[in-house]
Simulated assay, not measured.
Amino acid sequence: MQPLKIGILGFGRFAESAILPAMQQTKLVKLVAIQKRNISIARAKAGQYGIPYAYDSEEELVRNPDVEAVFIASSNNQHLPQTRIAARHGKHVLCEKPMALSVPEAREMIRVCRENEVKLMIAHMLRYSKSVREARQIYSSGALGDVRLAHSDFCIDAKESPRAWIADPAVAGGGPVMDVGVHALDTIRCILGRKIEEVQAFLEPPLTQDQIEWDAQIGLRFSGGLFATIQTSFRLFYEAMIVLHGTQGTLQLRNYSQNKGTAILSWIYPDQTEKRWLVENGNFYKAELEAFAQAVLRNEEPEIPGEEGLENQIVLDRAYGKI
């Protein structure tokens, strides 16, 4: 099987530090082009890593016949326009989270990819974390009994982020809810596999055209009457944790979001005894890229299609009071 030839739109620090190394470690993907607004830096990076093509224009990159698909690693406000231009040039799309700035944008991304018969996958890489998959298997097995409550949090200190636009509502679309809260949301959805029926949210301060929220708590009612909370912040140290409360025990998952890191799972039994064990997360960026490449090369539906990103976007928009 020949590798899928990919171009990266928005070759910034994230693409260079996380996506590029993953591409170098798989035989299913070949990076052939990068795009960055500063053409001098783009050419220098291409030369440094042996990438054949460098551009400062999305249009030029997607016109290249050697490019079969794109990885969109640009700022959030570029996801729709870059998906649109890629799809119209027949390029398959792997788009970073959050999928879009709004539900209408997400639906347009799905429509334009379907209309142009290209694949659309959303890069929720934590679904490929081996510890997340183990937690999902435990939940699905019924070993926790009747799970009634769940919790998922994801916090970072935004002051340490290299992304200059992270606090610009026009570019980011929101604060931690859009940035890392969507990870907490998608991961708990992946584990539970249930439909979200109701959303309530508290934001501090409220999202406006001029300011993002910095802290948030979102309450979710899943089908079957299961309640979950999501907490996310731009003002705390880095932490990601998931907790499932069942009648036969409580499962806690920590450090699942560290690529090639070690997660800690803890099972607290009804008698308050506890079992702890470690799980290697694996290289989930590599696994994500390989899943996308296989979907394209085999002409199959991606594991995380645009419709899954849309489900998350609906929750985000409800949290922000947009719908």
Rank of each mutant, 00 (worst) to 15 (best):
I212E: 02
A240N: 15
G249K: 05
T208S: 14
T247A: 03
L265Y: 06
Q211R: 09
Q272V: 01
V243G: 03
Q217K: 13
T250D: 10
F237E: 13
T229Y: 15
S257Q: 06
D271E: 08
W277Q: 10
P206E: 13
L207K: 14
N255A: 09
Q252I: 12
Q209H: 10
T232M: 13
R276S: 02
N283T: 08
W214Y: 12
L253D: 09
L244D: 03
G246Q: 03
N281H: 08
G261N: 02
E274W: 00
Q272F: 06
L236I: 04
Q211H: 06
W214M: 15
E290H: 05
T247F: 10
L253H: 11
Q258K: 08
I212H: 07
Q258M: 10
Y238P: 02
N283F: 02
L226K: 02
I218Q: 00
A263L: 05
D271A: 10
F237V: 08
L226N: 00
R254T: 15
L253F: 10
D215F: 08
Q217Y: 00
N281S: 02
S233V: 01
T273W: 01
T262C: 00
P205C: 04
G225W: 10
K286F: 07
N259Y: 00
W214I: 10
Q258I: 13
D271R: 05
Q248S: 09
Y269V: 11
Q209I: 05
Q211E: 07
E290F: 12
P206C: 07
I218D: 07
P270A: 13
Q231W: 01
G261H: 00
L220T: 03
H245K: 10
F222M: 04
N283A: 09
G261Y: 00
D215Q: 11
Q258W: 09
T232Q: 12
Y256I: 01
Q252G: 07
I242R: 06
E274L: 08
I268F: 05
L265T: 08
T229I: 14
H245C: 13
Q211C: 15
R221G: 00
G219K: 05
Q252M: 10
T229M: 15
I218E: 06
L289W: 04
Q272H: 11
G249E: 00
E239Q: 01
R221V: 13
L220A: 03
F227C: 05
R276G: 03
E290K: 01
F234H: 11
S257R: 07
T247W: 08
D271G: 07
F237L: 08
F234P: 01
E213G: 06
S266H: 05
Q211M: 07
